[in-house]
Simulated scan of single mutants.
Amino acid sequence: MEYAPRLLRAGVSAELHQWPGTFHGSQAILSAEVRPRQTAELAAALRRAMAG
């Protein structure tokens, strides 16, 4: 939780996304109800980063 704000303070572009009730790596659980939302938000963040 502190990593993204530290990156931002250092001038690094960063986004922090939270999904209540999940844990680091929970996106790997294919049957998780939140997984499609996680995947969509990750893809959108990558598109924004690649667009510059």
Rank of each mutant, 00 (worst) to 15 (best):
M1G: 08
M1K: 00
A4D: 01
A4V: 10
A4M: 12
A4C: 08
A4T: 01
P5L: 05
P5T: 10
L7A: 04
L8I: 03
L8G: 00
R9P: 07
R9I: 03
R9E: 09
R9T: 06
R9W: 11
A10I: 01
G11N: 07
G11F: 07
V12Y: 03
S13N: 15
S13C: 15
A14C: 09
A14M: 02
E15Y: 14
E15H: 09
E15F: 11
L16S: 05
L16D: 01
H17N: 11
Q18L: 13
Q18N: 10
W19P: 01
W19Y: 09
P20W: 11
G21A: 03
G21V: 05
H24M: 02
H24C: 05
G25T: 03
G25A: 12
S26Y: 04
Q27W: 15
Q27N: 14
Q27V: 15
Q27I: 15
A28N: 05
I29P: 04
L30V: 14
L30P: 11
S31Q: 08
A32M: 09
E33F: 00
E33L: 13
V34R: 10
V34H: 03
R35H: 02
P36I: 10
R37Q: 14
R37C: 10
Q38F: 13
A40D: 04
A40R: 12
E41R: 09
L42G: 11
A43R: 06
A43W: 14
A44N: 02
A44E: 13
A45K: 08
A45C: 04
A45G: 12
A45R: 02
A45W: 14
L46F: 09
R47K: 13
R47P: 06
R47Q: 12
R47E: 00
A49N: 09
M50C: 13
M50D: 12
M50V: 12
G52S: 07
